[in-house]
C-alpha cells in the first residue's frame, strides 16, 4: 500500500486525492476517511507526500520495485 497515511495527522482535506496523478487516493466524505483505494496503481511519484499541508503522508516502496544495487568490488 504505497502512500501511508498518518491518521492522527491527516485533516481529511482531500488535497492529496485531488492532485494524485493516478487517482490512487480517495476521500470518503461521509466516513471522513482518506482511503488508499488503488495501491497497485501508485507511481510512487510523491505528489501526495510533497503537497500534504500537514505532512501526514509517507511512501512505502513495495518489494516488487526493489532497486538492485551491487557493492563495488575493491581490488
Amino acid at each position: 500500500m504505497p502512500p501511508v497515511i498518518d491518521e492522527k495527522k491527516c485533516k481529511k482535506c482531500g488535497y492529496c486525492a485531488a492532485i494524485c496523478p493516478l487517482d490512487v487516493l480517495y476521500l470518503d466524505k461521509a466516513a471522513q476517511k482518506l482511503l488508499v483505494r488503488y495501491p497497485d496503481e501508485c507511481w510512487h511519484c510523491k505528489a501526495c507526500m510533497r503537497d500534504c499541508p500537514v505532512k501526514a503522508i509517507t511512501i512505502r516502496y513495495p518489494l516488487s520495485h526493489m532497486m538492485l544495487h551491487y557493492p563495488k568490488e575493491v581490488e
Binding site: 492532485i19 494524485c20 496523478p21 493516478l22 487517482d23
Partner: peptide, 8 residues
C-alpha cells in the same frame, strides 16, 4: 484526466 497541478 487528473489535475493539472500535478499531472503527467
Amino acid at each position: 484526466k487528473a489535475d493539472t497541478r500535478r499531472s503527467g
